[in-house]
């Protein structure tokens, strides 16, 4: 088992390297000239050329990538003379659109995304697994139908639509909450909760849906498995069978999806953060696309890749723990 973990971690590092190469190549091949976007109205060929040098886009892609990689470990210097400055390690580059080191930007936006993800994750697991279990135990009854309808609606409606409906109905039509206005929980926990409850709810409604379904179907499958029927035949109590066998078997696909969903949330919930004006990493990332801010785009892509790759490793390990039949050598 230990060896397995070490090997997976090693592959994870290789994978991240591959991600960084692909990302860099992909984004360097975009037909946008970041230098041309720096001067707007006054753009003239010589200004664009000068800016290209200043931003480092005059170098070959390989060299750019090497500088980028080096920057992660030793930091990076920019500009010359009075206008010079540097981004200390770990540096993902400098954003000329936002006048900050990318690492600083990510460091500032990540906590928001983390709060959003953790809260939403807890909410949707409770709602999703709970309603899925209820549906499975009441198969064919009204509880099951209701859970089904909820699943369908939640999984099918686009995030921005649900988010805005939640926002408008709770804040404007019902008037229960004030408009979400993000503040750090360290600053004002009540205001923080006020701002986060609706985005959490939105993500929970959307994500819980697929968990309801997975849980329901997983449990129904498991209830018909031979080993479960064996447990019943052996005379084990219903709750023990449900807990020890049914839930456990049903959890396998859920753990897979949950780990990955959570990880990709940590990389930024673009739409939710936009709808609720949360200054998180998703918004940072989408802004970088909009502004063709390549350093930020590469930086956020890489950071979210780190989470997903880590989650993958954890999921693989959990697989072995949850389903003894699938213990990988």
């Amino acid at each position: 088992m230990f060896l397995f973990v070490v090997r997976r971690l090693f592959f994870a590092v290789l994978l991240l390297l591959a991600v960084s190469v692909v990302t860099y190549l992909l984004f360097s091949a975009l037909p946008v000239d970041p230098a041309a976007l720096t001067c707007g109205k006054n753009c003239k060929p010589d200004i664009i050329a000068a800016n290209r040098i200043r931003l480092g886009y005059d170098k070959s892609i390989v060299e750019q990538y090497w500088l980028f990689l080096k920057g992660i470990f030793v930091g990076r210097d920019y500009g010359m003379g009075q206008a010079a400055f540097s981004c200390p390690a770990p540096s993902f580059g400098y954003s000329f659109a936002q006048h900050e080191c990318v690492t600083t930007l990510i460091g500032r936006t990540f906590p928001v995304t983390a709060y959003l993800s953790i809260g939403a994750f807890i909410m949707w697991m409770i709602i999703g697994v709970g309603s899925g279990a209820i549906a499975a135990l009441n198969k064919g009854k009204w509880q099951d139908r209701l859970a089904n309808a909820f699943t369908a609606v939640g999984v099918s409606l686009p995030t921005f639509y649900v988010g805005l409906l939640v926002l408008f109905s709770v804040v404007i039509w019902l008037g229960i909450l004030p408009f979400p206005d993000y503040v750090s929980p360290l600053e004002d926990p009540i205001k923080f909760l006020n701002a986060m409850i609706l985005p959490w709810l939105t993500l929970a409604i959307l994500s819980a849906a697929s968990y309801t379904r997975l849980t329901r179907n997983g449990m129904l499958e498991a209830m018909n498995e031979d080993f479960v029927r064996l447990g019943v035949a052996k005379g084990l109590s219903r709750s023990v069978v449900l807990r020890k066998y049914v839930m456990r078997a049903a959890m396998v696909p859920i753990v897979t999806i949950a780990g990955l969903d959570f990880a990709s949330l940590l990389g930024g919930a673009i739409i939710t953060e936009s709808v609720f004006s949360l200054p998180g990493m998703g918004k940072l990332a989408i802004r970088s696309v909009v502004e063709s801010d390549l350093p930020v785009l590469v930086g956020t892509t890489l950071v979210s890749a780190v989470f997903i790759v880590l989650a993958n490793v954890i999921v693989d390990i959990m697989y072995g723990v949850l389903d003894p039949r699938v213990r990988v050598k």
């Binding site: 592959f11 994978l15 991240l16 591959a18 991600v19 692909v22 990302t23 992909l26 984004f27 091949a29 975009l30 037909p31 946008v32 990955l260 990709s264 990389g267 930024g268 673009i270 739409i271 990332a285 989408i286 696309v289 785009l297 956020t300 892509t301 979210s304 890749a305 997903i308 790759v309 993958n312």
Partner: peptide, 19 residues
């Protein structure tokens, strides 16, 4: 699979549209 999953898909979908 891991490599594909590692990318934030929505972001890439948007970024790669034009090219």
């Amino acid at each position: 699979t891991d490599l594909t999953l590692a990318f934030p898909s929505l972001l890439l979908m948007i970024a790669l549209t034009r090219p």
